[in-house]
Design a protein around this nucleic acid. Structure first.
Length: 138
RNA sequence: GCGGCAGGUUGCUUUAUCGCCUCGAUGAAAGUCGGGGAGGAAAGUCCGGGCAACGCAGGGCACCGUGCUUCUUAACGAGAAGAACUUCGAAAGGGGUUAUGAGCGUAACAGAAAACAACCACCCCGCUGCAGUUUGUCUGCAGCAGGGAACGGGUGAAAAGGCGGGGUAAAAGCCCACCGGUGGUUGUGGUGACACAAUCAGCCGUACGUAUCACGGGUUGCAAAGCCAAAUAUAUCCCGAUUAUGCACCUGAAAUUGCAUAGCGAAGUUGCCCGCUUCGCAACUGGAUUACAUCCGGAUGUCGGGAGGGGUAGGCUGCAAGGACCAAAACAGCAAUGUUUUGGCAAGAUAAAUGAUAAAGGCCUCUUUGAAAAAGGGGUACAGAACCCGGCUUAUAAACCUGCCAUUUUU
RNA sequence: UGUCCCGUGGUGUAAUUGGCAACACGUCUGAUUUUGGUUCAGAAGAGUCCAAGUUCGAGCCUUGGCGGGACAA
Protein backbone atom coordinates (compact mmCIF):
# COMPACT_ATOMS: atom_id res chain seq x y z
CA UNK A 1 0.00 0.00 0.00
CA UNK A 2 2.89 2.37 0.64
CA UNK A 3 3.48 3.66 -2.79
CA UNK A 4 6.13 6.30 -2.24
CA UNK A 5 8.03 5.26 0.89
CA UNK A 6 11.42 6.66 -0.01
CA UNK A 7 10.31 9.91 -1.63
CA UNK A 8 8.30 11.21 1.27
CA UNK A 9 11.08 13.48 2.52
CA UNK A 10 11.57 15.20 -0.83
CA UNK A 11 8.30 16.98 -1.23
CA UNK A 12 9.09 18.91 -4.39
CA UNK A 13 9.50 15.81 -6.40
CA UNK A 14 5.84 15.42 -7.39
CA UNK A 15 4.98 19.03 -8.06
CA UNK A 16 3.73 19.96 -11.51
CA UNK A 17 3.04 23.66 -11.68
CA UNK A 18 2.18 25.91 -14.56
CA UNK A 19 5.86 26.68 -15.27
CA UNK A 20 6.37 23.11 -16.45
CA UNK A 21 3.54 23.29 -18.97
CA UNK A 22 3.99 24.62 -22.45
CA UNK A 23 1.57 27.48 -22.98
CA UNK A 24 2.89 29.46 -25.93
CA UNK A 25 1.08 28.88 -29.17
CA UNK A 26 4.20 29.72 -31.14
CA UNK A 27 6.31 27.11 -29.39
CA UNK A 28 3.66 24.47 -29.87
CA UNK A 29 3.50 25.13 -33.58
CA UNK A 30 7.27 24.90 -33.80
CA UNK A 31 7.17 21.63 -31.92
CA UNK A 32 4.71 20.07 -34.33
CA UNK A 33 6.63 21.17 -37.43
CA UNK A 34 10.15 20.25 -36.24
CA UNK A 35 9.64 17.58 -33.58
CA UNK A 36 10.35 13.85 -33.69
CA UNK A 37 7.56 11.39 -32.94
CA UNK A 38 7.13 7.87 -31.67
CA UNK A 39 4.25 5.76 -30.46
CA UNK A 40 3.60 3.92 -27.20
CA UNK A 41 -0.03 2.79 -27.28
CA UNK A 42 -2.28 4.57 -26.35
CA UNK A 43 0.04 7.59 -26.44
CA UNK A 44 1.71 9.43 -29.29
CA UNK A 45 4.69 11.53 -28.28
CA UNK A 46 6.09 14.54 -30.12
CA UNK A 47 9.25 16.10 -28.69
CA UNK A 48 12.07 18.49 -29.46
CA UNK A 49 14.58 20.69 -27.64
CA UNK A 50 13.40 24.16 -26.65
CA UNK A 51 14.83 27.30 -25.11
CA UNK A 52 13.45 27.75 -21.63
CA UNK A 53 14.40 29.16 -18.26
CA UNK A 54 12.10 26.73 -16.47
CA UNK A 55 12.99 24.61 -13.50
CA UNK A 56 12.00 21.14 -14.61
CA UNK A 57 13.51 18.85 -17.18
CA UNK A 58 10.78 19.49 -19.76
CA UNK A 59 7.74 21.51 -20.74
CA UNK A 60 4.72 19.38 -21.40
CA UNK A 61 1.39 19.48 -23.24
CA UNK A 62 -1.40 16.93 -22.87
CA UNK A 63 -3.78 16.64 -25.79
CA UNK A 64 -6.95 14.65 -26.48
CA UNK A 65 -8.73 15.04 -29.78
CA UNK A 66 -12.34 16.12 -30.07
CA UNK A 67 -12.76 13.57 -32.83
CA UNK A 68 -12.11 10.65 -30.46
CA UNK A 69 -14.09 11.87 -27.44
CA UNK A 70 -16.97 14.17 -28.26
CA UNK A 71 -17.91 14.97 -24.67
CA UNK A 72 -15.80 17.43 -22.73
CA UNK A 73 -16.10 15.37 -19.55
CA UNK A 74 -14.30 12.38 -21.01
CA UNK A 75 -11.58 14.55 -22.54
CA UNK A 76 -10.96 16.16 -19.18
CA UNK A 77 -10.85 12.78 -17.46
CA UNK A 78 -8.23 11.40 -19.84
CA UNK A 79 -6.13 14.56 -19.62
CA UNK A 80 -6.21 14.49 -15.83
CA UNK A 81 -5.10 10.86 -15.75
CA UNK A 82 -2.26 11.57 -18.18
CA UNK A 83 -1.19 14.55 -16.12
CA UNK A 84 -1.15 12.49 -12.92
CA UNK A 85 0.87 9.77 -14.61
CA UNK A 86 3.47 12.28 -15.75
CA UNK A 87 3.55 14.07 -12.41
CA UNK A 88 4.25 10.89 -10.45
CA UNK A 89 6.89 9.56 -12.84
CA UNK A 90 8.69 12.55 -14.25
CA UNK A 91 11.85 11.85 -12.20
CA UNK A 92 12.53 9.09 -14.73
CA UNK A 93 13.33 11.81 -17.23
CA UNK A 94 15.81 13.60 -14.98
CA UNK A 95 19.24 12.72 -16.40
CA UNK A 96 22.43 13.76 -14.70
CA UNK A 97 24.24 15.61 -17.49
CA UNK A 98 21.37 16.75 -19.65
CA UNK A 99 20.77 20.45 -19.19
CA UNK A 100 18.86 21.06 -22.44
CA UNK A 101 15.14 20.93 -21.66
CA UNK A 102 12.62 19.19 -23.90
CA UNK A 103 9.22 20.23 -25.17
CA UNK A 104 6.91 17.23 -25.19
CA UNK A 105 3.36 16.71 -26.39
CA UNK A 106 1.47 13.64 -25.20
CA UNK A 107 -1.42 12.88 -27.54
CA UNK A 108 -4.01 10.30 -26.55
CA UNK A 109 -4.81 8.01 -29.48
CA UNK A 110 -6.80 5.15 -27.91
CA UNK A 111 -10.45 4.86 -28.84
CA UNK A 112 -11.56 3.81 -25.32
CA UNK A 113 -11.06 5.41 -21.93
CA UNK A 114 -8.39 3.35 -20.16
CA UNK A 115 -7.93 3.24 -16.40
CA UNK A 116 -5.08 5.00 -14.65
CA UNK A 117 -2.74 2.05 -14.33
CA UNK A 118 -2.50 1.21 -18.00
CA UNK A 119 -1.94 4.86 -18.81
CA UNK A 120 0.78 5.02 -16.17
CA UNK A 121 2.46 1.93 -17.64
CA UNK A 122 2.55 3.54 -21.07
CA UNK A 123 3.81 6.77 -19.58
CA UNK A 124 6.72 5.04 -17.82
CA UNK A 125 7.73 3.26 -21.01
CA UNK A 126 7.59 6.43 -23.08
CA UNK A 127 9.59 8.43 -20.52
CA UNK A 128 12.34 5.81 -20.56
CA UNK A 129 12.41 5.94 -24.36
CA UNK A 130 12.55 9.72 -24.29
CA UNK A 131 15.57 9.66 -21.97
CA UNK A 132 17.38 7.18 -24.19
CA UNK A 133 16.66 9.21 -27.32
CA UNK A 134 17.56 12.61 -25.93
CA UNK A 135 21.00 11.82 -24.56
CA UNK A 136 22.79 10.88 -27.80
CA UNK A 137 20.90 13.59 -29.64
CA UNK A 138 22.82 16.85 -29.35
C1' G B 1 -52.34 -2.57 -1.78
C1' C B 2 -51.70 -2.16 -7.12
C1' G B 3 -51.83 0.88 -11.77
C1' G B 4 -51.90 5.77 -13.76
C1' C B 5 -52.10 11.48 -14.34
C1' A B 6 -50.35 16.46 -12.96
C1' G B 7 -46.95 19.58 -10.21
C1' G B 8 -42.51 20.08 -7.25
C1' U B 9 -37.69 18.70 -4.71
C1' U B 10 -32.98 16.11 -4.19
C1' G B 11 -29.44 14.09 -7.26
C1' C B 12 -24.21 9.79 -2.95
C1' U B 13 -21.03 10.14 1.83
C1' U B 14 -16.38 9.47 4.64
C1' U B 15 -11.11 8.49 5.34
C1' A B 16 -5.85 8.12 3.68
C1' U B 17 -1.69 9.44 0.23
C1' C B 18 -0.01 12.66 -3.64
C1' G B 19 -1.44 17.10 -6.20
C1' C B 20 -3.95 21.75 -9.29
C1' C B 21 -6.07 27.10 -9.69
C1' U B 22 -7.04 31.54 -7.02
C1' C B 23 -7.47 35.40 -2.92
C1' G B 24 -5.44 37.23 1.81
C1' A B 25 -1.50 37.48 5.60
C1' U B 26 3.72 36.98 6.46
C1' G B 27 8.75 36.80 4.37
C1' A B 28 14.62 39.54 1.01
C1' A B 29 13.53 34.97 -1.49
C1' A B 30 12.43 29.81 -1.41
C1' G B 31 8.38 28.96 1.19
C1' U B 32 4.65 28.73 5.31
C1' C B 33 -0.34 29.56 7.33
C1' G B 34 -5.53 30.55 6.45
C1' G B 35 -10.18 31.22 3.11
C1' G B 36 -12.62 29.67 -1.54
C1' G B 37 -13.03 26.36 -5.94
C1' A B 38 -18.86 23.47 -11.52
C1' G B 39 -24.67 22.50 -12.87
C1' G B 40 -29.95 21.51 -12.89
C1' A B 41 -29.25 21.39 -17.03
C1' A B 42 -22.87 24.69 -16.86
C1' A B 43 -25.33 21.62 -22.99
C1' G B 44 -28.18 23.13 -27.65
C1' U B 45 -27.53 28.42 -29.14
C1' C B 46 -33.93 28.55 -30.21
C1' C B 47 -35.82 33.53 -28.20
C1' G B 48 -35.50 38.10 -24.91
C1' G B 49 -32.45 41.74 -22.23
C1' G B 50 -27.97 44.10 -19.85
C1' C B 51 -23.08 45.78 -21.53
C1' A B 52 -19.68 47.54 -25.72
C1' A B 53 -18.38 49.64 -30.62
C1' C B 54 -20.21 51.89 -35.01
C1' G B 55 -24.48 54.44 -37.19
C1' C B 56 -28.68 57.79 -36.33
C1' A B 57 -33.16 65.14 -37.18
C1' G B 58 -37.95 63.07 -38.27
C1' G B 59 -41.08 60.09 -41.39
C1' G B 60 -42.33 56.47 -45.26
C1' C B 61 -41.41 52.07 -48.45
C1' A B 62 -39.05 47.39 -48.49
C1' C B 63 -37.38 43.13 -45.37
C1' C B 64 -37.84 39.90 -40.95
C1' G B 65 -40.64 38.16 -36.68
C1' U B 66 -45.22 37.60 -33.80
C1' G B 67 -50.74 36.97 -34.21
C1' C B 68 -58.02 34.08 -29.67
C1' U B 69 -58.73 37.05 -24.55
C1' U B 70 -57.16 39.22 -19.91
C1' C B 71 -53.06 39.59 -16.86
C1' U B 72 -47.58 39.00 -15.24
C1' U B 73 -42.71 40.72 -16.48
C1' A B 74 -36.92 44.95 -17.47
C1' A B 75 -38.24 42.31 -21.99
C1' C B 76 -39.82 38.13 -24.99
C1' G B 77 -41.91 34.05 -29.78
C1' A B 78 -41.66 33.01 -22.26
C1' G B 79 -45.23 32.32 -18.06
C1' A B 80 -50.32 32.31 -15.41
C1' A B 81 -55.59 32.12 -15.61
C1' G B 82 -59.35 31.50 -19.10
C1' A B 83 -62.53 31.17 -24.27
C1' A B 84 -64.10 28.47 -28.94
C1' C B 85 -63.23 24.22 -32.09
C1' U B 86 -60.82 19.54 -32.53
C1' U B 87 -58.26 15.05 -31.16
C1' C B 88 -56.10 10.84 -27.75
C1' G B 89 -57.67 8.37 -23.07
C1' A B 90 -62.44 4.35 -19.26
C1' A B 91 -61.14 8.61 -15.99
C1' A B 92 -57.88 12.11 -13.66
C1' G B 93 -55.80 14.64 -17.62
C1' G B 94 -52.65 15.43 -22.31
C1' G B 95 -51.80 17.36 -27.48
C1' G B 96 -53.17 20.68 -31.55
C1' U B 97 -55.58 24.98 -33.97
C1' U B 98 -57.76 30.05 -33.66
C1' A B 99 -55.80 38.52 -36.33
C1' U B 100 -59.00 39.82 -41.16
C1' G B 101 -62.04 37.48 -45.10
C1' A B 102 -63.13 42.33 -49.98
C1' G B 103 -60.10 40.58 -54.17
C1' C B 104 -56.61 37.15 -56.80
C1' G B 105 -54.01 32.35 -57.57
C1' U B 106 -53.38 26.83 -56.91
C1' A B 107 -55.83 21.95 -55.85
C1' A B 108 -51.45 16.23 -59.09
C1' C B 109 -53.86 11.30 -60.57
C1' A B 110 -58.91 9.88 -61.04
C1' G B 111 -63.56 12.03 -62.38
C1' A B 112 -68.77 14.83 -66.55
C1' A B 113 -67.13 18.64 -63.39
C1' A B 114 -62.34 21.03 -58.31
C1' A B 115 -66.57 25.70 -58.54
C1' C B 116 -66.78 30.05 -64.61
C1' A B 117 -68.81 26.86 -67.80
C1' A B 118 -69.37 22.63 -70.93
C1' C B 119 -70.58 16.90 -71.66
C1' C B 120 -73.76 12.26 -71.05
C1' A B 121 -78.53 11.02 -69.44
C1' C B 122 -83.58 13.84 -68.37
C1' C B 123 -87.71 17.25 -70.02
C1' C B 124 -90.27 20.83 -73.47
C1' C B 125 -91.26 23.31 -78.30
C1' G B 126 -90.37 23.20 -83.73
C1' C B 127 -88.90 20.66 -88.38
C1' U B 128 -87.63 16.13 -91.29
C1' G B 129 -87.82 10.76 -92.09
C1' C B 130 -89.81 5.83 -90.94
C1' A B 131 -93.57 2.70 -88.63
C1' G B 132 -98.49 2.06 -86.43
C1' U B 133 -103.98 3.20 -87.20
C1' U B 134 -109.37 4.88 -82.99
C1' U B 135 -107.29 9.06 -89.58
C1' G B 136 -106.31 13.05 -85.19
C1' U B 137 -103.47 19.96 -84.12
C1' C B 138 -102.74 11.34 -82.75
C1' U B 139 -98.86 7.79 -80.82
C1' G B 140 -93.90 5.57 -80.93
C1' C B 141 -88.72 5.51 -82.72
C1' A B 142 -84.46 8.03 -85.07
C1' G B 143 -81.98 12.58 -86.61
C1' C B 144 -81.30 18.10 -86.74
C1' A B 145 -81.90 22.99 -84.50
C1' G B 146 -83.45 25.98 -80.14
C1' G B 147 -84.38 26.10 -74.97
C1' G B 148 -85.12 24.40 -69.45
C1' A B 149 -82.73 22.77 -64.97
C1' A B 150 -78.17 21.78 -62.11
C1' C B 151 -81.98 16.56 -59.42
C1' G B 152 -78.76 11.57 -61.41
C1' G B 153 -73.56 10.31 -63.59
C1' G B 154 -68.66 3.99 -60.92
C1' U B 155 -64.18 8.97 -59.14
C1' G B 156 -61.69 11.51 -55.22
C1' A B 157 -58.61 13.85 -49.44
C1' A B 158 -62.65 17.18 -50.62
C1' A B 159 -68.75 17.23 -54.89
C1' A B 160 -72.38 22.69 -54.09
C1' G B 161 -76.64 22.23 -46.40
C1' G B 162 -79.51 17.17 -44.30
C1' C B 163 -84.27 14.60 -44.27
C1' G B 164 -89.58 14.52 -45.39
C1' G B 165 -93.66 16.78 -47.98
C1' G B 166 -95.60 20.17 -51.63
C1' G B 167 -94.63 21.76 -56.49
C1' U B 168 -93.36 21.03 -62.04
C1' A B 169 -93.19 19.44 -68.87
C1' A B 170 -88.81 17.64 -66.11
C1' A B 171 -86.52 19.89 -61.88
C1' A B 172 -84.23 22.78 -58.21
C1' G B 173 -84.52 26.24 -50.76
C1' C B 174 -88.58 27.33 -55.87
C1' C B 175 -91.97 26.92 -51.24
C1' C B 176 -93.08 24.72 -46.20
C1' A B 177 -92.05 21.94 -41.30
C1' C B 178 -87.91 20.10 -38.28
C1' C B 179 -82.57 20.16 -37.77
C1' G B 180 -77.39 22.02 -38.79
C1' G B 181 -74.45 26.28 -40.06
C1' U B 182 -73.57 31.86 -41.30
C1' G B 183 -74.50 37.09 -40.65
C1' G B 184 -77.22 41.45 -38.54
C1' U B 185 -80.07 43.65 -34.37
C1' U B 186 -81.73 43.60 -29.26
C1' G B 187 -81.47 41.83 -24.17
C1' U B 188 -78.85 39.29 -19.99
C1' G B 189 -74.00 37.56 -17.73
C1' G B 190 -68.57 38.43 -18.07
C1' U B 191 -62.81 43.38 -17.58
C1' G B 192 -62.56 40.47 -22.21
C1' A B 193 -62.25 36.27 -25.81
C1' C B 194 -67.20 34.50 -25.54
C1' A B 195 -71.83 32.17 -23.65
C1' C B 196 -77.25 32.04 -23.32
C1' A B 197 -82.09 33.82 -25.09
C1' A B 198 -85.29 36.34 -28.62
C1' U B 199 -85.95 38.06 -33.54
C1' C B 200 -84.83 39.06 -38.75
C1' A B 201 -82.31 37.89 -43.30
C1' G B 202 -80.57 35.27 -47.40
C1' C B 203 -80.15 29.91 -48.61
C1' C B 204 -74.92 29.37 -47.09
C1' G B 205 -68.46 24.76 -49.11
C1' U B 206 -62.94 23.41 -47.90
C1' A B 207 -57.44 23.75 -47.59
C1' C B 208 -53.02 26.39 -48.67
C1' G B 209 -50.69 30.67 -50.61
C1' U B 210 -50.94 35.79 -51.86
C1' A B 211 -53.01 40.19 -50.00
C1' U B 212 -54.60 43.37 -45.80
C1' C B 213 -54.42 44.92 -40.54
C1' A B 214 -52.06 45.51 -35.58
C1' C B 215 -47.58 45.32 -32.69
C1' G B 216 -42.19 44.87 -32.46
C1' G B 217 -37.17 45.05 -34.76
C1' G B 218 -30.65 50.16 -36.48
C1' U B 219 -26.13 46.71 -37.31
C1' U B 220 -22.44 43.71 -35.13
C1' G B 221 -20.96 40.94 -31.04
C1' C B 222 -16.52 40.25 -24.92
C1' A B 223 -12.15 36.90 -30.59
C1' A B 224 -17.18 43.52 -28.81
C1' A B 225 -14.08 47.61 -27.14
C1' G B 226 -9.73 50.31 -24.86
C1' C B 227 -4.41 50.51 -23.33
C1' C B 228 0.79 48.64 -23.24
C1' A B 229 4.66 45.71 -25.39
C1' A B 230 6.64 43.21 -29.64
C1' A B 231 6.80 42.82 -34.98
C1' U B 232 6.32 44.14 -40.41
C1' A B 233 6.46 45.68 -46.76
C1' U B 234 3.15 49.98 -47.60
C1' A B 235 1.21 46.88 -54.04
C1' U B 236 -3.13 49.77 -55.36
C1' C B 237 -7.10 53.67 -54.93
C1' C B 238 -8.99 58.51 -52.84
C1' C B 239 -8.06 63.36 -50.34
C1' G B 240 -4.60 67.21 -48.81
C1' A B 241 0.24 69.42 -48.73
C1' U B 242 4.88 69.87 -51.06
C1' U B 243 8.61 69.44 -54.99
C1' A B 244 10.61 69.70 -60.21
C1' U B 245 10.12 71.99 -65.17
C1' G B 246 7.78 75.63 -68.42
C1' C B 247 4.75 80.01 -69.15
C1' A B 248 2.32 84.43 -67.14
C1' C B 249 2.32 88.27 -63.32
C1' C B 250 5.05 90.92 -59.57
C1' U B 251 9.86 92.33 -57.81
C1' G B 252 14.67 93.83 -59.68
C1' A B 253 18.24 92.43 -52.97
C1' A B 254 15.60 88.10 -51.67
C1' A B 255 10.90 86.04 -51.49
C1' U B 256 5.69 85.31 -53.21
C1' U B 257 1.12 84.13 -56.42
C1' G B 258 -1.73 81.71 -60.55
C1' C B 259 -2.05 78.05 -64.60
C1' A B 260 -0.22 73.61 -67.23
C1' U B 261 2.51 68.79 -67.17
C1' A B 262 4.09 64.48 -63.86
C1' G B 263 -0.02 60.55 -69.87
C1' C B 264 -2.76 57.47 -73.66
C1' G B 265 -3.28 52.99 -76.65
C1' A B 266 -2.03 47.85 -78.24
C1' A B 267 0.11 42.98 -77.32
C1' G B 268 2.01 39.38 -73.81
C1' U B 269 2.02 37.53 -68.75
C1' U B 270 -3.16 32.10 -65.38
C1' G B 271 -10.30 33.60 -66.70
C1' C B 272 -10.79 39.07 -64.53
C1' C B 273 -8.61 43.60 -62.02
C1' C B 274 -4.04 45.80 -60.39
C1' G B 275 1.01 45.42 -61.36
C1' C B 276 5.14 44.06 -64.62
C1' U B 277 7.54 43.53 -69.65
C1' U B 278 7.71 45.02 -74.87
C1' C B 279 6.11 48.25 -78.83
C1' G B 280 3.74 52.71 -80.80
C1' C B 281 1.79 57.75 -80.20
C1' A B 282 1.46 62.41 -77.58
C1' A B 283 3.67 65.85 -74.35
C1' C B 284 7.75 68.15 -70.79
C1' U B 285 12.89 68.99 -70.55
C1' G B 286 18.79 69.04 -71.36
C1' G B 287 22.43 68.90 -75.40
C1' A B 288 23.82 69.00 -80.84
C1' U B 289 21.69 72.38 -84.92
C1' U B 290 20.60 79.38 -88.04
C1' A B 291 15.43 77.28 -87.77
C1' C B 292 11.70 73.28 -88.74
C1' A B 293 12.52 68.27 -89.17
C1' U B 294 15.99 64.84 -87.21
C1' C B 295 19.58 62.45 -83.74
C1' C B 296 21.43 61.34 -78.58
C1' G B 297 19.99 61.50 -73.38
C1' G B 298 16.81 62.46 -68.78
C1' A B 299 12.37 62.67 -65.54
C1' U B 300 7.06 60.95 -64.96
C1' G B 301 8.25 62.04 -57.78
C1' U B 302 8.06 62.92 -52.09
C1' C B 303 5.34 63.45 -47.34
C1' G B 304 0.74 63.06 -44.21
C1' G B 305 -4.36 61.01 -43.48
C1' G B 306 -8.23 57.35 -44.95
C1' A B 307 -9.75 52.72 -47.56
C1' G B 308 -7.18 48.36 -48.50
C1' G B 309 -3.01 45.17 -47.70
C1' G B 310 0.85 43.22 -44.40
C1' G B 311 2.78 41.90 -39.34
C1' U B 312 2.00 40.17 -34.19
C1' A B 313 -0.98 35.54 -31.45
C1' G B 314 2.24 38.19 -25.43
C1' G B 315 0.17 41.12 -21.09
C1' C B 316 -3.57 44.37 -18.55
C1' U B 317 -8.63 46.42 -18.33
C1' G B 318 -13.52 44.58 -19.76
C1' C B 319 -13.93 40.21 -15.47
C1' A B 320 -15.49 37.97 -10.87
C1' A B 321 -18.58 40.42 -4.20
C1' G B 322 -24.59 44.53 -4.34
C1' G B 323 -27.97 42.96 -8.45
C1' A B 324 -34.23 43.07 -13.14
C1' C B 325 -29.69 38.51 -6.97
C1' C B 326 -31.17 34.28 -3.48
C1' A B 327 -34.10 32.24 0.82
C1' A B 328 -37.92 32.52 4.62
C1' A B 329 -42.26 34.85 6.78
C1' A B 330 -46.52 38.18 6.50
C1' C B 331 -49.95 40.68 3.31
C1' A B 332 -52.53 41.27 -1.85
C1' G B 333 -54.00 37.95 -5.92
C1' C B 334 -57.57 31.80 -8.38
C1' A B 335 -52.45 31.90 -10.24
C1' A B 336 -47.96 33.70 -12.77
C1' U B 337 -46.28 37.51 -9.67
C1' G B 338 -45.93 41.95 -6.61
C1' U B 339 -45.05 44.80 -1.81
C1' U B 340 -42.85 44.91 3.09
C1' U B 341 -39.63 42.87 6.89
C1' U B 342 -35.60 39.71 8.31
C1' G B 343 -31.40 36.90 6.93
C1' G B 344 -27.66 35.58 3.20
C1' C B 345 -24.13 36.74 -0.67
C1' A B 346 -16.33 35.75 -2.36
C1' A B 347 -15.62 29.56 -8.79
C1' G B 348 -12.82 32.78 -12.08
C1' A B 349 -9.42 29.16 -15.58
C1' U B 350 -7.16 31.07 -20.57
C1' A B 351 -3.29 24.60 -24.73
C1' A B 352 -7.92 26.34 -20.19
C1' A B 353 -7.70 24.82 -12.54
C1' U B 354 -11.88 22.67 -9.60
C1' G B 355 -8.35 16.38 -9.50
C1' A B 356 -5.90 11.13 -9.42
C1' U B 357 -5.30 6.60 -6.77
C1' A B 358 -6.76 3.19 -2.82
C1' A B 359 -10.24 1.66 0.88
C1' A B 360 -14.80 1.75 3.74
C1' G B 361 -19.96 2.88 4.03
C1' G B 362 -25.00 4.25 2.24
C1' C B 363 -29.02 3.48 -1.47
C1' C B 364 -31.32 0.34 -5.42
C1' U B 365 -31.61 -4.44 -7.67
C1' C B 366 -30.69 -9.88 -8.82
C1' U B 367 -29.40 -15.03 -7.10
C1' U B 368 -29.25 -18.87 -3.10
C1' U B 369 -33.35 -19.99 1.11
C1' G B 370 -40.23 -21.62 3.18
C1' A B 371 -39.21 -16.58 5.43
C1' A B 372 -35.81 -13.41 7.92
C1' A B 373 -30.76 -12.84 8.66
C1' A B 374 -26.38 -13.72 6.03
C1' A B 375 -23.31 -14.46 1.68
C1' G B 376 -22.20 -13.46 -3.44
C1' G B 377 -22.92 -10.67 -8.16
C1' G B 378 -24.41 -6.07 -10.61
C1' G B 379 -25.74 -0.78 -10.74
C1' U B 380 -24.85 4.34 -8.41
C1' A B 381 -27.16 8.79 -14.01
C1' C B 382 -26.88 12.94 -17.55
C1' A B 383 -22.96 15.70 -17.79
C1' G B 384 -17.79 20.18 -17.04
C1' A B 385 -18.26 27.15 -16.08
C1' A B 386 -15.44 30.64 -20.28
C1' C B 387 -18.82 38.52 -20.20
C1' C B 388 -23.46 38.31 -17.19
C1' C B 389 -28.82 37.55 -16.43
C1' G B 390 -34.54 35.81 -17.72
C1' G B 391 -36.95 31.86 -20.36
C1' C B 392 -37.51 27.62 -23.83
C1' U B 393 -35.71 22.91 -25.68
C1' U B 394 -32.92 18.46 -25.23
C1' A B 395 -30.15 14.50 -21.84
C1' U B 396 -30.77 12.18 -16.96
C1' A B 397 -29.43 5.98 -12.55
C1' A B 398 -32.25 6.40 -8.34
C1' A B 399 -35.11 8.42 -4.34
C1' C B 400 -38.74 11.60 -1.94
C1' C B 401 -43.16 15.05 -1.28
C1' U B 402 -48.24 17.03 -2.55
C1' G B 403 -52.95 16.64 -5.08
C1' C B 404 -56.21 13.86 -8.25
C1' C B 405 -58.36 9.38 -11.16
C1' A B 406 -59.49 4.11 -11.76
C1' U B 407 -59.60 -0.68 -9.52
C1' U B 408 -59.34 -4.53 -5.42
C1' U B 409 -59.98 -5.89 -0.20
C1' U B 410 -61.72 -4.60 4.76
C1' U B 411 -64.80 -1.55 8.03
C1' U C 1 -16.33 31.29 -27.17
C1' G C 2 -19.36 33.60 -30.88
C1' U C 3 -21.50 33.83 -35.91
C1' C C 4 -23.01 31.15 -40.24
C1' C C 5 -23.72 27.13 -43.87
C1' C C 6 -24.64 22.09 -45.45
C1' G C 7 -26.69 16.75 -45.19
C1' U C 8 -30.23 12.71 -51.72
C1' G C 9 -27.54 5.26 -54.73
C1' G C 10 -20.37 3.58 -53.69
C1' U C 11 -18.77 8.99 -55.62
C1' G C 12 -20.25 13.84 -57.73
C1' U C 13 -24.66 16.52 -58.73
C1' A C 14 -30.42 17.32 -60.30
C1' A C 15 -35.58 17.40 -58.78
C1' U C 16 -39.87 24.64 -61.78
C1' U C 17 -43.84 28.34 -56.07
C1' G C 18 -45.60 20.24 -52.08
C1' G C 19 -47.94 15.53 -56.69
C1' C C 20 -44.34 8.50 -60.04
C1' A C 21 -36.82 10.49 -56.59
C1' A C 22 -33.52 11.82 -62.24
C1' C C 23 -28.42 12.01 -64.58
C1' A C 24 -23.12 10.98 -65.10
C1' C C 25 -18.99 8.12 -63.35
C1' G C 26 -18.28 3.56 -60.83
C1' U C 27 -20.18 -1.86 -59.83
C1' C C 28 -22.27 -6.52 -61.89
C1' U C 29 -23.89 -9.64 -66.24
C1' G C 30 -23.68 -10.68 -71.48
C1' A C 31 -21.69 -9.70 -76.55
C1' U C 32 -17.31 -8.30 -79.53
C1' U C 33 -11.63 -9.96 -78.75
C1' U C 34 -6.64 -15.36 -78.43
C1' U C 35 -6.76 -12.36 -73.54
C1' G C 36 -7.26 -7.41 -71.35
C1' G C 37 -8.80 -2.42 -72.54
C1' U C 38 -12.15 0.39 -75.75
C1' U C 39 -17.10 -0.11 -77.68
C1' C C 40 -22.28 -2.05 -77.60
C1' A C 41 -26.60 -4.14 -74.87
C1' G C 42 -28.87 -5.02 -70.17
C1' A C 43 -29.34 -5.17 -64.79
C1' A C 44 -28.76 -4.22 -59.70
C1' G C 45 -28.01 -0.53 -56.24
C1' A C 46 -31.89 5.11 -52.30
C1' G C 47 -36.73 5.75 -50.00
C1' U C 48 -33.69 11.50 -49.46
C1' C C 49 -29.13 12.08 -41.69
C1' C C 50 -32.97 10.82 -37.39
C1' A C 51 -37.76 11.77 -34.88
C1' A C 52 -42.34 14.38 -34.43
C1' G C 53 -45.97 17.87 -36.68
C1' U C 54 -48.90 20.56 -40.78
C1' U C 55 -51.35 18.33 -45.19
C1' C C 56 -55.45 14.00 -48.93
C1' G C 57 -50.09 13.60 -49.89
C1' A C 58 -43.47 15.95 -47.65
C1' G C 59 -36.68 15.35 -50.65
C1' C C 60 -39.26 20.32 -50.47
C1' C C 61 -42.94 23.61 -45.23
C1' U C 62 -42.47 23.86 -39.40
C1' U C 63 -40.12 22.18 -34.71
C1' G C 64 -36.47 19.40 -31.96
C1' G C 65 -32.19 16.24 -32.12
C1' C C 66 -27.58 14.02 -34.76
C1' G C 67 -23.41 14.56 -37.91
C1' G C 68 -20.00 17.44 -41.05
C1' G C 69 -17.77 22.06 -42.49
C1' A C 70 -16.40 27.45 -42.82
C1' C C 71 -15.30 32.22 -40.75
C1' A C 72 -13.28 35.61 -36.72
C1' A C 73 -8.19 39.80 -32.31
Amino acid sequence: MEKFPENRSEKRRFILSKDERLCSKKQIEKLFTEGDTFLVYPLKIVYTEIESKGLGPAKVVFAVSTKIFKKAVFRNLVKRRMREAYRLNKQLLQAENNPAPLGIVFIYIGKKILDFHSIEKAMKRSLALLRKNSIPNP
